[in-house]
Design a binder for these strands. Structure first.
Length: 472
RNA sequence: GGCCCCAUCGUCUAGUGGCCUAGGACACCAGCCUCUCACGUUGGCGACACGGGUUCGACUCCCGUUGGGGCUACCA
């Protein structure tokens, strides 16, 4: 690993960027950063019919949100067509590949027959030694696979994985429409981009012997391989839409912090003793292949939530404020005009009062309503229960005390409340709840002294008076 | 079906032949704290898939079984 490390993340833009892909990207990125190497983003868009620009946009946006920044790319395979054709030409010239005139329909037919007989469907090599091409047919190009002996994949995680070459067949490297196929371009790309380590999902392991043969055919040195185990859903099936949100951006949009996401994902398949919490810098320093696990991991939303709440709890209010702003807008707490104008400093003021009681930024956004709302709405049940005539004298007393109080910090406020509860022989709860409802409209809020202090004398007095008017 | 990978609490994992009466974290349950909701805190529940070897000694090594996952396309 003293050579310059070059790794890549190579998603296909055929849907949203999902959790599993992000974990792969993260491991590649950490590996590159740890070894001071390069992390390259490459879009595998050889399947024209399924690739979309929207998907590419989402991949880039998702990685950006998480701070998984590429050093090179995004490269797009559709832009590297000439390179692939050159390589195909070379194989053809060297007799290592050949034109295949079989139609997809014929192939499909043969596959069905093989399956029906309980055999493994393999290409029968019909066109392999054809002297005269059948007229009027388009052709695809197949690679001449070596079918004797075996191919060994040397995997950094799993050791030597041996495949019997009789399991393989001549794979198509150029479709009849002139576009190259995945197993071929991935080899050409990784070779020509000087990728040193291919770290990717387990689902690619079984295709790797084909790729190894291609490396040999092309006279390229294969990279080191490392196949990560999959991330599964709660039913142990491969993670998919059925398991709920799997798009990385949906986590951003539902109030998760990128640091929490990274911290969660890295622990799916990697560990460092008993440690659970890692900063990015720490991960870069500590990440190593030796501590990657071999077994598949089940995605556990509860633990992600816990990590998110941890990061909210311990986060810097100013930083949290910038993440909170879009949710303030989305939740309708602040109108668009105001949301863009208000400073992070202003937003950050309320945040400490909510850090301990918010598991997501959405929860936090909702919790700020008392602070940002011009006029508060009473929750009907709360008002009926707590805004009752017997509380009016207390409110009046509080208004009086607040108005003559010079300090409005939580300590001074607590003294005012203690004074009242002692004189009246009441428990704090007896007056805190009605005050809470008068000030926030709800029975749930940050600590009452925090609420009062944050709101400031003027608004507190105003809302208490409004409460009195409501009662009377 | 064939081939390949994997196997410690419900979940993520520590464990690299004696340190294990198997540790931590999430979740769950109970107590404490308390102005609401939370936070916090204390305790509890809870696993080496099974069967054979190897060894003085296996969670750790080997084989098999079972279970799960992946691949088996002119998808990636």
């Amino acid at each position: 690993m003293n050579e310059k490390v070059r790794v890549r993340f190579a998603p296909s833009p055929t849907g949203y960027l999902h959790i599993g892909g992000v974990r792969t990207a993260l491991f590649n990125w950490l590996f590159a950063r740890h070894h001071k190497g390069k992390f390259i983003l490459r879009i595998e868009d050889t399947d024209l019919s399924r690739s979309t620009d929207e998907s590419i946009r989402q991949i880039i946006e998702g990685l950006k949100w998480l701070g998984i920044d590429p050093d090179e790319g995004p490269y797009r395979q559709t832009e590297r067509r000439d390179i692939y054709l050159e390589h195909i030409e070379r194989l053809l010239k060297e007799g290592k590949a050949y034109q295949c005139y079989c139609t997809p329909e014929e192939l499909e037919q043969k596959r069905k027959e093989a399956l029906a007989k309980g055999e493994k469907p393999r290409y029968d090599g019909k066109c392999r030694n054809l002297d005269t091409p059948p007229p009027g047919r388009t052709s695809a190009v197949r690679f001449k696979t070596t079918m004797e002996g075996n191919t060994v994949v040397d995997d950094l995680l799993r050791g030597e994985v041996v495949f019997d070459n009789t399991e393989l067949d001549d794979l198509i490297i150029l479709r009849s429409d002139g576009t190259p196929t995945y197993n071929f371009v991935v080899v050409v790309d990784d070779a020509t981009m000087n990728i040193t380590h291919v770290i990717r999902g387990d689902d690619h392991l079984a295709n790797t012997p084909r790729q190894v043969q291609l490396y040999h055919g092309l006279a390229y040195q294969p990279p080191k391989f490392l196949h990560l185990s999959m991330i599964l859903g709660s039913d142990k099936a491969r993670l998919s839409k059925r398991h709920g949100a799997t798009s990385i951006l949906s986590y951003r949009d539902t109030g998760y912090l990128p640091g929490a996401m990274i911290n969660y994902l890295v622990r799916l398949g990697w560990s460092y003793g008993d440690q659970e919490i890692f900063s990015k810098e720490e991960l870069i320093e500590k990440f190593s292949i030796e501590n990657i696990g071999k077994s598949a991991a089940v995605f556990n939303p509860e633990k992600l939530l816990w990590l998110n709440s941890h990061y909210i709890k311990t986060g810097d209010p100013l930083r949290l404020a910038s993440y909170l702003r879009p949710h303030l807008l989305n939740e309708g707490i602040l109108p668009e005009s105001q949301a863009s104008e208000i400073s992070v400093e202003e937003i950050a003021k309320v945040i400490p009062s909510l850090q301990e009681r918010s598991k997501t930024l959405i929860e936090m956004a909702r919790g700020t309503e008392f602070f940002f709302a011009k006029e508060i709405q009473y929750d009907e049940k709360a008002a009926r229960k707590f805004l009752i005539p017997s509380i009016v004298p207390i409110f009046e007393r509080l208004i009086h005390m607040f108005e003559k109080s010079e300090n409005f910090d939580t300590d001074s406020l607590e003294r005012i409340f203690t004074d009242i509860t002692e004189k009246q022989g009441l428990k704090l709860g007896k007056i805190a709840q009605p005050v809470r409802v008068a000030l926030t409209g709800k029975t749930v809020s940050p600590g009452i002294f925090d609420v009062i202090s944050l709101l400031g004398k003027e608004r507190v007095v105003e809302r208490l008076k409004m409460g009195i008017r409501y009662i009377g």
